[in-house]
Each structure stands twice: as C-alpha cells, then as structure tokens.
C-alpha cells in the first residue's frame, strides 16, 4: 500500500520544488522552492531582473523549466510518472494542464483583433467548447464583475490601460483557474489608472481566489498579501507572512529594496535596526 502521508495536512495548491531556469549559462531562476496553499495571496517582490516573471512563466509552462518540479492541484505540470520515470507531456496535454492557472501580463496582451467581449469569451468557447451563447453570457458576467459592462463591444485600442488590464483579468477568470498569476499587473499603467486595477484584484482576494502577484505596489502588497516572497538573483531570499516581512525585513537586500522603493523613507524598518549605509 502506498504511503499516503499524514492525512490531516491538505496538499498545497501549488508546489514548486527546486525550480531552475537557465538562459545560456545564467540561472535566472535558481533552485526555487515554494508552496502555496488554497486561499493564500502571495506577493512576489524584488528588483528588476530577479527572475520573478520567469518563475511565474515556468509555473504555467509558458517557459519550460530547466530543472525542478511544479505541481498544481496535485498535477505534475511536466508529465506523468510511469515506472518511476517522467514521461513528458505532449504539448496538447500541457495546454490542458495550463488551464489550472490563469495569467495576467504586465502588458495586458489582449487579442487585438477581438472585442473585449470576445477576448473573454474565446477561451470558454474554443478551449472549453461551450456553446456560443453560454460563452457570451459567461464573458458578460466576468466583464460585469470587472465593472466593464459599458465597454464590452470595444476593441482593446479603444480602452484605457486600466480597462484593458481588467478585461485581461476577466479573460483569465472566465477559464475558472484554481490559481491566478499576476505579473506586475499595474506596471505598464499611467499612475491614475493603477487604483482601479488594484481594486479589482482586491475584490478577487476577498472572494478567496488563490493568487501569486508580482508587484512593486508595496502598500497593496502589505494590505492584500497574506505572504511576501522576496526574490533576488533568481533566489527566494525571504518568504514570510506579509505583516512580518514589512515590519521586520530580515535580509539586507530586502531592506535595501524597500528603502529604494520608498524613496529613502522606510518607516517600517526600525524594528530591524537602522539600515546600514
């Protein structure tokens, strides 16, 4: 009989084990291990080039990991084990597994030739095989949830950045993913449009959606995140409850990062001692 392990501990929704992604000979993501339980909201922060995007892209396999394992909802994203050996998935199987996750990109990446409605409906219609009317109804529902009912027939270029990003969120949600991945969802936005997108993400958090959010919005990370993962140089340097992290960042690089983000003023740092320098 196989060892089932302690039954009381629920399997995490996401398990990343020893994930590396090597470009050329540079490990852009370097032996990252991360578990995310259902309902958690993990804020990933860190300097540009830390490997945050690459990690997210490996989780949904837009990027193929060089090493390590990724499990989403108990599914091995790389393939199936047969006789102890990993048999890699065909690309069509990967496509199906990818539906476990939803992704929101920094630059929205809305389908430029489709209306907002069709951007959201095309997944349910073509990927899930829903009847056209049902896909349309579902899309309208998600667009309404994103407060976009007035804009359903517009093309992406007719929408503001904030509206586009909310369409992109609706597009991902319409596929009913178990885990949402946000890659700097507000970084490409004009400052006055950041709020509406963060508000939309807050709404999803309240609804209990499990999310990993790469962000530079520290106040948002602090308020909405249940956990903060600080990355630097391809590694997870700190992984702690959000309140703890912002109160007492342990690592110098995290302190320095927060200091830079706050433009020199880092009021939360006192508990960790005065920043050196």
């Amino acid at each position: 009989m196989p060892d089932a392990g302690p039954a009381a501990v629920p399997a995490p929704l996401l398990r990343v084990l020893g994930l590396s992604k090597i470009f050329g000979d540079i490990p852009v993501v370097d032996r990252v291990t991360l578990e995310v339980a259902t309902g958690e909201i993990v804020m990933v922060i860190g300097p540009s080039g830390a490997g945050k995007s690459t990690m997210l892209r490996c989780i949904n396999r837009i990027e193929t990991p060089s090493e390590g394992e990724i499990w989403v909802a108990g599914v091995n994203m790389a393939g199936e084990l047969r006789d102890g050996r990993l048999v890699p998935d065909a690309r069509a199987v990967t496509a199906r597994k990818r539906r476990l996750t939803g992704m929101v990109f920094q630059r929205f990446n809305l389908f430029t030739h489709l209306s907002a409605l069709d951007n959201v409906a095309i997944g349910p219609r073509r990927v899930l095989g829903m009847p056209a009317a049902a896909a349309r109804a579902l899309a309208l529902e998600h667009l309404d949830r994103m407060k976009l009912s007035a804009h359903v027939d517009k093309r992406p270029i007719q929408l503001s950045g904030g509206q586009q990003q909310r369409v992109a969120i609706a597009r991902a949600l319409a596929m009913s993913p178990q885990l949402m991945l946000f890659d700097e969802p507000t970084s490409a936005l004009d400052p006055e449009l950041v709020g509406e997108v963060l508000e939309a993400i807050r709404g999803l958090a309240r609804d209990g959606l499990t999310m990993i959010v790469v962000t530079h919005e520290m106040q948002f990370a602090r308020e909405v995140g249940t956990r903060v993962v600080f990355m630097d140089g391809g590694r997870i340097v700190e992984d702690r409850p959000s309140a703890d992290f912002f109160a007492t960042p342990r690592h110098e690089r995290a302190r320095e990062f927060l200091r830079r983000i706050h433009g020199g003023a880092a009021p939360a740092l006192t508990a960790a001692g005065p920043p050196p320098g």
């Binding site: 892209r57 949904n60 837009i62 690309r91 069509a92 496509a95 199906r96 990818r98 539906r99 996750t101 939803g102 992704m103 990109f105 630059r107 990446n109 809305l110 389908f111 430029t112 030739h113 095309i122 997944g123 073509r126 990927v127 899930l128 992109a168 597009r171 991902a172 319409a174 596929m175």
Partner: peptide
Amino acid sequence: IEPGQTEAALSIGMTDRQGLLLILLPQ
C-alpha cells in the same frame, strides 16, 4: 506579431494550433 499574443493564447489553454488559427492568422 508580438510574442505576447501567443503567450496570452497559451495562458488560456489554447493549443499551438488554436493560437495560430484563432489569434495569429487573423491578426
């Protein structure tokens, strides 16, 4: 066509062929 379009197609579970025929070709 910008690679982000293909990535978005993949991210909602489209196969390579669907991405090509439904997203890239029309654009």
